[in-house]
């Protein structure tokens, strides 16, 4: 099934400090409204007020490098962001995304096509997206971790496994 999304485009090596500043790490932890207010605060001050549910971020290499803070994922979920699609992800960010149910799609070639405000169409079943008239294929998740995403995250999958 194909879905349509508005794009926020960013470059290479966007780190977790600019996605969710460290100064809030122990004061803003769970409240979705507060988390979403600080999303991308030190990268793009227009993001938090302008993002709409269903939007996607398209970025370059090594998205989410730096700190392991999970709010760098949950603040984007709190904004209603549908997915982060990047050339590549830093490994802890990628794990945090899977474990919290944020779609993190590694898609080589995507960054150079992306412009903020453009439209991207996504077909998860087919593993492809269309951006700027080009069709690209993204890397499937390792089979062994797909069940975590399918369950909605790590804690949800643990609860399901225990019949909770």
């Amino acid at each position: 099934m194909r879905s349509r999304h508005r794009v926020w485009a960013y470059g290479d090596h966007v780190n977790t400090d600019v996605i969710f500043p460290g100064k809030y790490t122990y004061s803003v932890q769970h409240d979705p409204a507060a988390l979403s207010r600080h999303a991308l605060e030190d990268l793009d001050p227009s993001f938090a007020s302008g993002v709409q549910p269903g939007d996607v971020i398209v970025a370059g290499r090594n998205w989410g490098n730096g700190s392991s803070r999970e709010q760098a994922v949950t603040c984007l979920l709190a904004c209603g962001l549908r997915a982060v699609i990047a050339e590549s992800f830093a490994r802890i960010y990628f794990r945090n995304a899977i474990n919290n149910g944020l779609l993190a799609l590694a898609c080589p070639g995507v960054a150079e096509l992306a412009q903020s405000g453009s439209e991207l169409s996504l077909d998860l079943d087919a593993g492809e997206l269309v951006l700027a008239g080009e069709t690209l294929h993204f890397t499937p998740l390792p089979p062994s971790v797909r069940h975590i995403v399918a369950a909605g995250g790590l804690i949800a999958s643990l609860k399901a496994a225990r019949g909770q």
Binding site: E70, V73, N99, N100, G153, L154, L158
Partner: peptide, 8 residues
């Protein structure tokens, strides 16, 4: 790893 993973 992340916080959820430590909880797990």
């Amino acid at each position: 790893v992340g916080r959820s993973e430590i909880a797990a």
